[in-house]
Simulated scan of single mutants.
Amino acid sequence: MSNIQDLVDDYIAMWNETDPTARARLAEQVWEPEASYVDPMAEANGRETIDATIGAVQGQFPGMSFALAGEVDAHHNLARFNWQLGTAQVPDMVVGFDVAVISDGGKLQAVHGFLDKVPAELG
């Protein structure tokens, strides 16, 4: 489980990394080259496109950060976890959960995101 926990921690760190070079390094550590990410508002295929999508989300929510909201639940090559996006004053402006598919190599092959709470202006 610790390897999956570490992978999810690195995944969240990537969402918070605003330096494009450092974020690209994290992308190489976290994602398979042909990985996919999908949620109700975005779809990205390939490590570079996922990285670019994360950069766009950071631009949409400047000054906010992602955090795990609870424990990572995992079995076999699957993990699910809750997260929140916000500020120190409002840590849960956006709330959701992700289901991750982990490759045999220990990297993310796919992430399927679900949004539980979204500000009205985005919904």
Rank of each mutant, 00 (worst) to 15 (best):
N3I: 04
I4N: 09
Q5D: 11
Q5I: 11
D6V: 06
V8K: 02
V8D: 02
I12M: 08
A13N: 15
A13T: 11
A13S: 13
W15H: 14
N16M: 10
E17G: 12
T18C: 15
D19Y: 14
T21I: 04
T21F: 03
A22M: 12
A24K: 13
A24W: 00
R25K: 15
A27H: 00
E28A: 08
Q29R: 03
Q29L: 10
V30K: 02
Y37R: 04
V38T: 10
V38N: 02
P40A: 07
E43F: 15
E43C: 10
E43D: 10
G46K: 04
R47A: 07
R47P: 01
R47E: 02
I50S: 03
I50G: 01
D51A: 09
I54D: 05
G55Y: 00
A56L: 12
A56S: 06
A56N: 09
P62A: 05
G63I: 09
G63L: 10
M64L: 14
A67N: 11
L68F: 02
G70C: 05
E71L: 10
E71A: 11
E71G: 07
V72I: 15
V72D: 08
D73R: 14
H75K: 15
H76P: 08
L78M: 10
A79N: 04
F81Y: 11
W83L: 00
W83E: 01
Q84A: 12
Q84S: 12
L85P: 04
T87D: 12
T87M: 13
A88S: 15
Q89E: 15
V90D: 14
P91I: 06
V95Y: 09
D98H: 13
D98C: 14
D98F: 10
A100N: 01
V101S: 03
I102A: 04
I102V: 13
I102T: 09
D104P: 07
G105K: 03
G106C: 02
Q109T: 02
V111L: 07
H112G: 01
K117L: 09
P119E: 08
P119Q: 08
P119A: 09
A120W: 10
A120V: 15
G123F: 05
